[in-house]
């Protein structure tokens, strides 16, 4: 049986600098042993522990979709010891990845429903995974209308810019990209995410909201969706906590009796209400 503490060896095959400030990069990783890709079978919303030998591990949400074969992607902001080391890496370097961990976006639950995706800033990564999964030709008809509302502080901080353009060309996706404050070249929408949500006003009829972003954004966006008639069971979000083992043993990421790494990170608001407010 696979030892859950041992990472799969991977090679960094591509590094994309996502934002103008250069502190968010996407890393494309290829499994050194092709059979590991089968073992690392994931669902959007799950995360992996990126492992840099000599530095440590860091839990990061998986940004690619399982429909993208041959590699996995992680979008990482430079912050601590591991992520800083990661940002200094070059293409071709060997590192490790452990996972996939956690539950995932509730795909079965989302099927047959209209989906509203709300993302803010850098937290858009696992939502991107979900979007790419849903719009894949094999999957698209399993889901209803898809509305995406994505905001960043300024145009330079939007991630996955090329993909956003591609998505906008599609007619089976309603994409709303907004920035808090535009610049000279910005032709798109301006305004905070909650305001844009109010303008877009997706119907609560047979709909589920998947929301992920900074706490302040979530706090102001939730009332909008409550007003639109969304029930707590139909608002789904993802939590963050300090983690080490990722498999519910090391004992630090629990919220009440639930471990964010094992029982989470994805919870519906209804579930969160039952947990203690310690996150």
């Amino acid at each position: 049986m696979q030892n859950p503490y041992i990472p799969y060896p991977v090679e960094v095959t591509k590094i994309i600098t996502e934002v103008d400030t250069k502190d968010i990069k996407t890393f494309r990783l290829k499994f050194v042993n092709p059979e590991d890709e089968e073992k690392f079978k994931y669902i959007p919303g799950q995360f992996g522990e990126l492992s840099i030998y000599g530095k440590g591990e860091s839990p990061i949400g998986i940004a690619s979709s399982p429909t993208q074969r041959g590699y996995i992607e992680f979008t990482v902001q430079k912050a601590g010891v591991v992520t800083s080391a990661l940002h200094e890496m070059e293409e071709g370097t060997l590192m490790g990845v452990r996972g996939p961990m956690g539950n995932s976006w509730p795909i079965k639950f989302l099927e047959g429903k209209n989906i509203v995706i709300v993302g803010g800033g850098f937290a858009f990564t696992t939502l991107r995974s979900l979007i790419n999964y849903m719009i894949h030709e094999n999957n698209r008809k399993r889901f209803g209308k898809i509305t995406v509302i994505y905001g960043a502080r300024n145009p330079g901080l939007l991630i996955y810019k090329d993909e956003l353009i591609e998505w906008q060309k599609r007619d089976d996706l309603n994409i709303n990209v907004t920035v808090d404050k535009g610049d000279a070249t910005w032709k798109g929408r301006e305004g905070f995410v909650p305001t844009v949500c109010k303008e877009v006003a997706p119907s609560a009829e047979n709909a589920v909201t998947v929301i992920c972003g900074p706490p302040i954004m979530i706090r102001f966006t939730l009332p909008v969706f409550f007003d639109l008639g969304f029930k707590k069971e139909n608002i789904i979000t993802s939590l963050e906590m300090r983690m080490k083992c990722g498999i519910g043993k090391c004992g630090r990421c629990n919220v009440g009796s639930k471990y964010v790494c094992k029982d989470g990170p994805v919870f519906s608001l209804a579930e969160l209400d039952k947990l203690t407010k310690e996150y």
């Binding site: 530095k55 440590g56 083992c245």
Partner: peptide, 22 residues
């Protein structure tokens, strides 16, 4: 009590990943 921490220790060309009590 069983909580633990995982950390890396490296020196020159070798290193270990250890877990220790936390």
């Amino acid at each position: 009590c069983h909580c633990f921490d995982i950390s890396d220790e490296a020196k020159a060309s070798d290193g270990v990943r250890i877990r220790s009590w936390d």
